[in-house]
């Protein structure tokens, strides 16, 4: 046990943890990102080329990645 933690807690009084996206907006952000991700993914599926891998697949994957994480949070499974 570390008894100095109480002082650490008091010293950090001015900086409560605030998430990047607040709870109220998580579902909307997640839905937007997932729709964007699936749209870009669909566009890539229609025209699969080496050029479209960085042009469409990478942004689609990024949108899906953050969209999935925020969708988990948005529906109440706080990961």
């Amino acid at each position: 046990m570390d008894s100095s933690l109480h002082e650490v807690w008091q010293a950090a009084a001015g900086s409560p943890f605030v998430p990047t996206i607040g709870k109220d907006n998580q579902f909307l952000v997640a839905l937007t990102l997932l729709l964007l991700g699936f749209s870009l993914g669909g566009a890539f599926a229609l025209n699969r080329s080496i050029v479209n891998l960085p042009a469409l697949a990478v942004p689609a994957s990024l949108a899906l990645a953050f969209g999935v994480v925020y969708m988990f949070c948005g529906v109440g499974v706080y990961v």
Binding site: G37, G41, F44, A45, R48, S49, I50, L53, A57, V58, A60, S61, L62, L64, A65, F66, V68, V69, V79
Partner: peptide
């Protein structure tokens, strides 16, 4: 770590789709 894992998985699917195509 979490978004990176999803990103890598999605990229793997897109890349596989391109290779299979």
């Amino acid at each position: 770590r979490k978004p990176l894992v999803v990103f890598a998985s999605a990229m793997a699917v897109f890349f596989a789709a391109w290779v299979v195509g």
